[in-house]
Design a protein around this nucleic acid. Structure first.
Lengths: 207, 207
DNA sequence: CTATGTGAATTTATTCACAGCA
DNA sequence: TGCTGTGAATAAATTCACATAG
């Protein structure tokens, strides 16, 4: 293992590896080769090996990889070993769906706060979490919440992003269907299912 | 414009362009330059111009692009000009959320059929759509439904995929958190929000 | 003899810089 | 003059092929 700048593409693939490794783990599978993993995942074995090699020597030559160890290593790389506290901003349809989404817990995220602008929602509970007024966002820093999930209408997304950045948030999961501008120290990941849907018809028959 | 093989990356970006062009259109904006679009979108102007150039000369030199024309062109490229009929397979939490998702309609998708395996769900309605028994999947071909959205538990995803392929489906939106194997004439797009979530902590502070 | 780890080769994608047209 | 369209240059990612370790 030498020094390498890790590409975003590699980081994009690691969660996919992790997902299927967790499945193998549930199945009490102890070891796995890059070939096995590759066919489970629909990628190439050498891609997997190279991705891992950027971070260290996780496997044993002639044998393969230890599933539990690999899970531990990937979790460490992705900083998923400890719980990541998340604040949800915008408790509408989308926000409620996000709260209920099982993948949140599975990968170590915990929604520990929820905010909305609508007075009638404030004080109500969603799961165990009490919905707070959006003006209380500034408490995030003190509560050591570094990630915000933004699920507000498109027109409010930019100002909401700015508010959570002011509140000290370092990463944003943007569920609003638009690009948002933030200081470059803050990482935004925009999740817009429609963007994935919309490219399917292109591939149907013909080119 | 010369012949070029269109890259998947370009196709991935087109829906993003479309999304923001639709917003501009709602705002009654008539024209836009690659620079304007680029700053709205958070990408580079030359990237936008090159992506468009693979498909034709959509702009006017010295002026820019006509918003409505660009929308029309991108819709045509992505095959979103006409309604795309979709069958939903698996009417659980996830499936119900998918049905309610507004992006579906916005990009010209219409869920015209729903299937489930649970007897108690069959015959009930979700929206306007009656839930059918999963054994009726073979009717898809006759009904000219070429896209299936699969939202079943992970363990059932592969067999469900095989069933919809047998039913003549040409494209699959896979909402189950796993890779599925299909004949290569069939296009699968897997949507797993957790895969996006899981890479956020990596980017928070430090490398 | 098997399966990893990795430089080198290849392919693919992005960025640049500017010619060309309104 | 302004902005598009695009070859050429650069950068990045993937694939290969094989040395290496168990």
């Amino acid at each position: 293992m030498r020094y390498h700048k890790i590409s975003d593409e590699t980081i994009r693939r690691l969660p996919v590896y992790l997902r299927d490794l967790l499945t193998l783990s549930q199945q009490r599978r102890a070891g796995v080769s890059s070939n096995d993993l590759a066919s489970l995942l629909g990628v190439n074995p050498w891609q997997i090996r190279k991705d891992f090699s950027y971070f260290g020597d996780f496997g044993t030559r002639g044998v393969g990889y230890d599933v539990e160890n690999l899970i531990r290593q990937i979790r460490k790389i992705l900083r998923l070993s400890t719980v990541n506290k998340v604040a949800l901003v915008g408790v509408g349809n989308l926000g409620t769906a996000v709260m209920a989404y099982p993948g949140f817990k599975r990968y170590g995220f915990e929604i520990v706060a929820a905010f909305d602008i609508a007075p009638k929602k404030i004080g109500k509970h969603i799961g165990d979490v009490r919905i707070e007024d959006i003006t209380a966002l500034h408490t995030l820093y003190r509560r050591q919440i570094h990630i915000a999930a933004i699920a507000v209408p498109r027109d409010a997304a930019q100002e909401t992003a700015e508010a959570v950045v002011r509140a000290g948030v370092k990463g944003i999961l943007n569920f609003s269907p638009c690009y948002i501008t933030v200081p470059k120290r803050v990482k935004v990941i925009t999740i817009d299912i429609a963007m994935d849907l919309a490219r399917l018809p292109y591939y149907l028959s013909g080119n």
